[in-house]
Amino acid sequence: MTMKPSFTRWLGLISILLGIIAWDLIVRVSGLPKFILPSPMDVWTRLLKSLADGSLLLHTGYTLIEIILGLFFGVCFATVIGYLLAKSRSLEKIVSPYLVASQAIPIVAVAPLLILWFGSGIASKVLICSLIVFFPVLVNTVVGVRAVQPVLYDLMNSVRATRWQILFNLELPASLPVLLGGLRIGATLSVIGAIVGELVDAKNGLGFLLKVGDFQYDTSMVFVAVFMLVSLALCLYGVVTLLERRFLKWQNRLDV
């Protein structure tokens, strides 16, 4: 029993190593040129180079800021509006056609429009990011708040709790598991949002780096950018997991 967690961790590492070895083998066997499929070593050298000249960190920083701001605004608006929707059926009736319609439009299609309207700077990316985060967080907020048990409202009302007390002592903690679930989806989507925006038009960011690498047949650079994106997404995912560990101790966790 005690051996199991560490063994599982090793398994993950071994799997990654095997993946890299397989990749290397494919490059060697197929003999594809570097600009089509670079080897792990090529990518590694390119990574070190872009780290040394500072370009990688600069662009990663840009993208990270877009993601964090986008997540922040997206989550804030989504939880507030989601809460109001959960509380009022008539408001939900009024707003939901727009929400559903907005979900039917792929973000890739509106991204050029948003950049046309809000410029190619950071604002348009933050906006795209917020938009893509908005819906899943909104839906989870509505579901979470609606799922609060009516008898717990009875309890709060029987001791004359105020609206704010009900919000902070009942609704928020009760819906937190679902809210964090929404945040988990949102965090992953936010990376996609930022990149979509940058790919359309940008002067900074990992999306920009990706485009430049592609344009210059610097495929190793493209790989480096993609790996950075994956790392960013994994970090965000990790942060949400930490939040869950911290705030959802009371739940029966199936793992660990």
Binding site: L152, D154, L155, S158, P173, A174, L176, W250, Q251
Partner: peptide
């Protein structure tokens, strides 16, 4: 309205407390 203490049919505890 007097101050009320209520015991519910099901324990009705907050699972996060």
């Amino acid at each position: 309205q007097p101050k009320i203490g209520m015991v519910f049919q099901q324990a009705n505890l907050m699972p996060w407390r």
